[in-house]
């Protein structure tokens, strides 16, 4: 495991601890520390979906208020960071669906995303798992998974973008995620 992974693990452990402090002690300073640790990443996550700073700021305000009120619902079965990501994505998706239109052009270019990810290598011991396994997918599967997961594109939007049949898109995404899972469990 490289130092970056170790740093991320420490960072995630800190996020877990803060959520627990919020749930047990109603500690506003813990919420502030959580905000300092996670808000920029969550802002990036939501901005890639909503493409609007003001909307994202409003969304984050609601999200941290929800964390304050629902921290006790975090069951500790996975990481608190994963829990936060799911909540942020769901809130962004709700906002996308309540808009009449997305407010930005659909983009099919995943290259900037892929370039941002750490370069994978074949050595599973040193290469970050998800990036390595994404690279191992067929190009179409990787494209669809990244566009739906990172930008929040619906199946319909993916169909508009790729001009592929809806059934094909669903099938590729489903199979791609299964292959991703198998690769990560190796």
């Amino acid at each position: 495991m490289g130092p970056d992974r170790a740093a991320i693990d420490l960072w995630q452990a800190e996020v877990d601890t803060l959520i627990t402090r919020i749930a047990r002690h109603r500690d506003v300073s813990a919420l502030e520390a959580l905000y300092r640790l996670t808000s920029a990443r969550l802002m990036g996550l939501t901005l890639r979906m909503l493409n609007n700073q003001a909307d994202c700021a409003d969304l984050l305000q609601e999200l941290y208020l929800k964390v304050w009120q629902q921290a006790h619902q975090f069951g500790g079965r996975g990481s608190a960071w994963g829990w936060l990501c799911v909540m942020a994505r769901n809130a962004a998706l709700d906002q996308l669906r309540s808009r009449q239109h997305r407010g930005q052009e659909l983009t099919r270019d995943i290259q900037p995303l892929m370039e941002t990810l750490p370069a994978p290598c074949n050595d599973a011991a040193v290469s970050p798992g998800l990036e390595r396994c994404l690279q191992a997918l067929r190009e179409e599967q990787r494209e669809l998974i990244l566009l739906s997961y990172i930008h929040g594109y619906s199946h319909q939007e993916l169909q508009d973008l790729t001009a592929r049949p809806l059934g094909t898109i669903k099938s590729w995404v489903r199979r791609g995620l299964q292959e991703l899972k198998q690769c990560l469990e190796r």
Binding site: R41, M43, G78, S79, C85, V86, L117, L130
Partner: peptide, 23 residues
């Protein structure tokens, strides 16, 4: 709940790797 937590943790590293934005 466990299955959702596992999938959330599988995918979350993507958000760690992509650029952050200061709010």
């Amino acid at each position: 709940e466990q299955a959702v937590a596992r999938w959330a943790d599988r995918m979350a590293p993507l958000h760690e790797a992509l650029p952050a934005e200061t709010p």
